[in-house]
Design a protein around this nucleic acid. Structure first.
Lengths: 157, 157
DNA sequence: CCTCCTGTTGCAAATGATATTCAGTTAGCG
DNA sequence: CGCTAACTGAATATCATTTGCAACAGGAGG
């Protein structure tokens, strides 16, 4: 299981930084892994506290998410209004997101050409990219359908 | 001056929504226009309150920025940590941003091909895009230089 | 194993950005 | 004009996130 490998690497990371290997930190990783890819911190806090309060407190979750971000296991992938949606990367290949503003559905995609064009743009501006985020907001097919139906009803009213 | 045109259109917009044409709202537009393209709301609030407190209060600035966003004259273009950077669009053509994480410099760019590829991706997923945001975080040329210098000194130490 | 030092945890309180409530004010229809 | 609905400012609430602090627990060295 590659989750174990990730934990080992995280252990290295912590040691290098002079941090300790604690029950809470690794418990949080397990919870994140079993939650699903996309999550918001408050959501995760609630989920953890419902499942097993002994894993970690709100503060520890926030602090650990920060560490995991530094480590690179987690990425801030969507920023919508005052919400921040994270994703457990865990060796998953890089990708971008389509976000349905109606129902919140998230679709992942990857387009090699877009990545290449970005590199080209950076070169042109003598800019050294560290990371990037492409968010496309809109309507998923289901919500588009739903809107059409509603429009129809309104039109007859 | 196209600012006047924008104001006229905004006036239409307000009327359609049953909103009123007030001194504050238009004063804020002037301040935003004279501030420069990129701004954060708190920054704008301070700027306005330094220049002329009678223009509008913090609440009105927040409320008006929201309206201007709905109207489409303002866009949330960069979300970094807990900061939100807005941009006064005012008929400017669409573009994306390179953001220097060291000094905060913002570079605008536009790549037709990237836009086209995004449309293609949306089609492939039967997704109807409404808007999008591409943020590339990294180091501008000046900051890259500076880092190299520092690395040099550290190496000799 | 025990001990000690340092980093960690949980809680509660602090922050910071943004939203809202409410009482007084104003736009603008009729 | 006069009235009503919308607007405004100030203070207050909210929401996510951070921090201070006292109690606690890794883990290196004995």
């Amino acid at each position: 299981m590659q989750l174990e490998e990730l934990k080992n690497k995280f252990e290295q990371f912590l040691k290098q930084k002079g941090h300790k290997i604690t029950r809470g930190r690794f418990g949080i990783i397990d919870k994140i892994a079993s939650y699903g890819t996309h999550f918001e911190i408050e959501e995760l806090v609630r989920w953890i506290s419902n499942q097993d309060k002994s894993v970690a407190s709100r503060s520890t979750v926030y602090r650990t998410v920060r560490l995991l971000q530094e480590f690179g296991a987690i990425r801030e992938v969507i920023k919508l209004g005052n919400r921040t949606i994270y994703e457990f990367v865990a060796g998953k290949p890089h990708h971008e997101h389509l976000i349905c503003v109606e129902c919140g559905t998230i679709i992942e995609f990857y387009k090699e050409e877009i990545e290449e064009l970005q590199d080209k743009v950076c070169e042109e501006h003598d800019f050294t990219p560290v990371n990037h985020r492409l968010e496309i907001f809109g309507l998923c097919s289901a919500c588009k359908e739903r809107r059409h139906e509603n429009r129809g009803l309104e039109a007859t009213a």
